[in-house]
Each structure stands twice: as structure tokens, then as C-alpha cells.
Design a protein around this nucleic acid. Structure first.
Lengths: 340, 340
DNA sequence: CTCACAACTGCAAGCGCTTCCACACACTAC
DNA sequence: GTAGTGTGTGGAAGCGCTTGCAGTTGTGAG
């Protein structure tokens, strides 16, 4: 393999100068810089990643920890982060925790701590303060997306406000019999999202003087499949059907739409459905939703981290609220006369 | 930071012995091994990734290149590969090429070649022979999934045979008026999949003596959205409607189902639909499909690569055919009397 | 009892870069 | 003139490990 030494030789410069020329740091005369570049290009030389990481302590690599790669939100965050990192010349090391708790443990202790990454993005992942402490101890900035991360910076949306806004959209159309599909409690422990959205829903209902009917609040696991099952139950068992469903995620809204189809319910005539996310399928299904720009959140996380790395400053724990946008499509409408 | 030196000191051993004890390579007495382990544990010591990579030339890191993270097949491959790698103590560096051709270029030249990875998995990605040559030159085994990769090992399914099988399922039910949703030609250049599946479809039709009607072959981009649009066109414009649709992927089959809904067509009564993949949503939608176990393909790629790395042997270019399975659900049925 | 050989251990030489430091040189300022 | 500043350069010391080599000890065979 050609090393920086070969380049130096060919360019008639010292290794030190070539290193500076190629990295852009330090003072190098334009002539030398050009010569170094030319020599490197001619030899097809590429810096050894590990050698420069070892010497400089910078890895040019960001770790992204996600609970799953299948759910839309996570894919979108990955996509946004990936593009931003590629642009900046950074690698993205993906840690897909999955269901296996042992994986979570090993990701943390064996991987993140091995100085492999300059920074960590944790998506909907609860790290203990202890773990964050450890990460801080090795000077690795962290940002969390989609959930509180004690002691770390986070990017999040106003979950409660968003749910309020969504519910108000339904109420504004004239619905009063509104059901809510929330996340399982288990998820709540980790990132509190279901509870927060649910409370926004309840607040809107209360403010409007509409009763919140416990049998119309069902929970699922945030997947289409899970919500499909939950919605079937909701639509089948209720003595009286709601005229609208507000799902805590687009995937769960989609599951609801599919379930409604099984009951011969037309959307929005018989049932209005809305979600939260901005899922790609929303367009096809005409899903009314609140777009939370997950891709943008991923990109923002990267920018935040890169900024911190480059300025060498410790990332102050800060909460950045990402903007959201109500997108009205055809899955919500005024309830049929006589049903509300 | 605590280094291996600290561990050695604490354990009363030399750095060399600790290194051997921790890595499991070379001969170390059980006593020393235990002492090294204990000292490492007490100090919370973790090997520096870059230092050991630099010294050993092994990165314990595999690069996975995908065209997108949103499409089901790619997510599934990522999931399978990720779990297998985590299990083996390897990192996964994800390169999401996306639409941007510049990204593709930089991923290849700047990233893959920087000795960051021990091996490369390329999913549905066409590398030129030249590029593969370069990768081989740095002794990086490659395996391709879902498309031919000249000079590299590949894992693939029998695309033509699978399409034949799928079409025969439809024919066996009594359908003769069968449409096909294929991939765009542009995809064909890269990994030939649409063309191969299409030819399997045509062969089955010809063998059965059924005419292949050009207006019943439409193409889309493998996404739900894309196929939705294509299927709408198919179902709207044809002077006569097909009784069954065979889509080249589950996502396109799902798009078709959604489109059919818009026309008031019931499935499978008015229209049978089947796909290829084994998409998670298949269950909910009752989609008949041919399961190609994408997760398994990802895991297999990892096992193949790890085997090659550990045995130090060059990976012989070989074509592994992954098994597939017809899964009959409720989206396909005997055509309505009088329609076939 | 000697020798061959295996098992174990430590020394030290790298792995391929980055960066501190010293030095040379060209300026401007007094 | 000297001192002070800034720029450009190379030497060389690491970064924190792995591993070849050589040395020590223990074992069974001859």
C-alpha cells in the first residue's frame, strides 16, 4: 500500500508537510499544497483511517443507535443523518439494538466506549444517567432524538402540543366521538412519548368539553400491524363507534385505515383518521397528519454534533424543539350528519 | 484514559501478555488470563479500536452499502446483517447512497478504500469491475446481495424461477388475464432484477398459452407510492381489466391493493394480487407472496464474509442461491365466474 | 541426566499517521 | 542596525495497541 511517505517522497516534501497539506490544517504554501495534492492523486493515495484516528484522536465517525430499522421514523432519521454525515466526510456506524437486551448492553459497553466514534446520536433510546456520564467522560457529545436524555442535548417535537393540535383539528371538523390509539406503556418508560401525546389528546378533549371514553383509548406498538389489530378490536367491540381516530403515529393511523376497511367503513365518510409523522405513504392514503420532518431531525442532530466537535466545546445540554406542520389530506372530514 | 498499560500494571503482567489474554490469541496460562481479565474489568478498560486496528490491520468493521433505507428489502437486509455482526463483535458502517450520484462516488473512493472496513456488502448496487478490482487489491472481500456483481460473491434468489412460480400460482387458480407490475428499466441496468422477473412471468404465461398483453405490463419504482400510481393507470385505462396482478415486489403489490380500493375493487373477489418479498405488512393485508427471507440474506452475507476474513482466504466468486417460499394468503383466489 | 520441544512470557519494533517543537527565512517596526 | 512578528518546513516523538522474536521454564522421551 502507498502511504503518506510515498506521497512525500514523490512530492519532494516532508511527511509533516504533506499531512498538513492534505488535511488543510496548519500553514502550507500554495505551491507545496498543490504538489502534495498532485502526488497523492497520482498515487491514488487515501489516508489510513485508523492511523489518522489514532494519531489525532478524531475518528470522523458518528454512532447512531436506533431501536429498529423498520419503523418509518427511524429510517427517516437514519436517512437524514446519513446524508448530512456523508456530506461532511463522516462515517456512520449504525447500532440497531433490536429486541435483544443483550445487544443493547454490548452496544453500549463494547462499542460506544471503544473510542470508535466522535459522537453519538441516540434515537428513542433511554440511556441511564450513568451511561451518559461515561460517554461524557470520554468527551463524546451525545444528542438524543425523540425522547428525553437526562444530561444530554435533545431534539424533539412538542409532543403534547402536537397531539393537542391534531385533536383540535378533529374537534374543529365537528367530531366529538374521538378515539385515540396510543403506544404501549412499555414504550412510555423509555421515552415518554405515548403518555405525552395522550395527555395532549385528553387536554384537547377536556377543553372542548368532550368526554374521553376509556374504551376508546387503545394501545399498540407503533407498527402498522400492531395498530391494525388494536383498531380492529376498537371498531369491533365498542357498543358505539367513534367517528374519528387520532393515532399517535402515522403507521398506527395506517393500521387503523386498514382495519376500518375490513369493517366496510369508508374513510373519511364513516371514519376520520389522522396520525403524526409525515410518513411517505401518507400521500397515497390521503392521510391527514402532523409532519414532524424526521429526516430534518436527523440532519439537525448531525449539524449540532459536528458543530460541537469542531468547536471543541462541550455540548451544553439543550432542548431543541423541531417545528411541525399540520398536513390536511382526505382522511379527515366533517362527520356524517347524525353521527356526532 | 486507562490503557492496556494500566491493566498490565495492575495485573502484574506485561502489556504483551495482557493483549494476548484479552484477545484470546496466542498462549497464555489460565492464571494470567484470569488476572488480566479481572484487572481489565476492574478498570473498566476497553481496547482502543483504532490502535488495535492499526496494529493488527483488522478493523472489525463491515461496510454495508445500500441504495436506500426506506425500502423494505434494504431494511430487512440491514437488520439481518446488523444482528449477525453485533453477535460477532463487529461494527456495521452504513453507507446510504441515496439518489445522489456524488455520494456514490465518494462512498467508494473516500470511504471504502480508506481501510476502514474488513469487508463490504453491496446491496443491489452495481460496482464496476474496476471498482471491485480495487477492493480486491486491498484484500477486502465483497459480497453482493440482490444483483450480479462481476468478480464478487453474490447471494441472490432465483428471480426468474420465482416469477414463474408466482405466475403459475395465479394460473393454477384459473386466471388467464394477468397483469404484471415490473420495475423501471433504469433499475434493470443496475441489477437486472425487473427484467429477470418479467421474463419469468412471460415464460409462465407462454407455457400456459396465455397471451401477454403489453398494456398490462406497467412499471414502477418498487415503492408503494410508485406502484399505486402505476396500478391506478392500469386499472383505469385498460379497456378490459385483468383479473389478477403479479407485482415484482410486495411493496408494489401493496400499492396495487391500495389502488384497487380506489376503484371499488375487492380483493380477491374482483382482483387477485400477489407480490414477491415477504414484507411485514403481508400478514395484515393477507398478501400472497413469495418470501425471500431478506433478513436471512443479510445474515448469510455476514457469515460468508466473516468466514473469509477468519480463514484469511480470498473469497472465491460464488453465486449462492437463497431459498424462497410461496406463502398463500387471502389476496389471491379463483377468479369470479365469467371473468376469466 | 540430557535433549528436544512445548508452553509461557516480556522486550521492543512497528502499524501510518498527527502535531509539537525548533529552525530558517522574510518581513515590518523601531 | 536590532528586535519582533509571521509563515513555511522538517525532525521526531508519540497515539495505544499487536506480534515477531528470544528467553525462561516445565515436561516427556531417549
Amino acid at each position: 500500500m502507498t502511504g503518506i511517505k510515498d506521497v512525500a517522497e514523490r512530492a519532494g516534501l516532508s511527511v509533516a508537510t504533506v499531512s498538513r497539506a492534505l488535511s488543510g490544517k496548519g500553514n502550507v504554501s500554495p505551491t507545496s499544497r498543490e504538489r502534495a495534492r498532485a502526488a497523492a492523486a497520482e498515487l491514488g493515495f487515501v489516508l489510513s483511517y485508523h492511523a489518522s484516528s489514532l494519531a489525532s484522536g478524531r475518528t470522523h465517525n458518528v454512532g447512531l443507535v436506533v431501536p429498529s430499522v423498520h419503523r418509518w421514523f427511524f429510517s427517516a432519521v437514519i436517512e437524514g443523518a446519513s446524508a448530512a454525515l456523508l456530506e461532511a466526510g463522516y462515517d456512520l456506524t449504525l447500532y440497531n439494538i433490536g429486541e435483544n437486551p443483550a445487544h443493547r448492553q454490548s452496544v453500549f459497553s463494547d462499542f460506544l466506549l471503544r473510542k470508535r466514534v466522535d459522537a453519538v446520536i441516540a434515537v428513542s433510546l433511554e440511556l441511564s444517567e450513568d451511561e451518559i456520564e461515561q460517554l461524557h467522560a470520554v468527551h463524546r457529545p451525545i444528542v438524543g432524538i425523540g425522547g428525553p436524555l437526562p444530561g444530554a442535548s435533545t431534539i424533539r417535537i412538542d409532543d403534547s402540543g402536537i397531539a393537542l393540535k391534531a385533536t383540535n383539528h378533529l374537534l374543529g371538523l365537528g367530531h366529538t366521538k374521538i378515539a385515540h390509539i396510543t403506544g404501549h406503556e412499555a414504550y412510555d418508560q423509555d421515552f415518554h412519548l405515548p403518555g405525552t401525546r395522550r395527555s395532549g389528546f385528553e387536554k384537547a378533549m377536556n377543553d372542548a368539553g368532550c368526554p374521553v371514553r376509556p374504551e376508546w383509548i387503545v394501545s399498540a406498538d407503533f407498527t402498522i400491524e400492531g395498530a391494525y389489530a388494536a383498531a380492529r378490536q376498537l371498531l369491533a367491540s365498542a357498543p358505539e363507534r367513534p367517528t374519528a381516530v387520532f393515532a399517535a403515529s402515522d403507521e398506527m393511523a395506517i393500521g387503523t385505515i386498514l382495519a376500518a376497511r375490513d369493517f366496510g367503513l369508508r374513510i373519511p365518510d364513516d371514519l376520520s383518521v389522522m396520525g403524526i409523522d409525515g410518513h411517505d405513504l401518507g400521500n397515497v392514503l390521503g392521510l391527514t397528519t402532523i409532519d414532524q420532518d424526521a429526516k430534518g431531525q436527523g440532519a439537525l442532530a448531525v449539524r449540532t454534533l459536528l458543530g460541537a466537535i469542531n468547536n471543541g466545546l462541550v455540548l451544553e445540554p439543550a432542548d431543541t424543539e423541531h417545528p411541525t406542520k399540520l398536513v390536511v389530506r382526505t382522511s379527515t372530514a366533517v362527520p356524517k350528519p347524525g353521527t356526532s
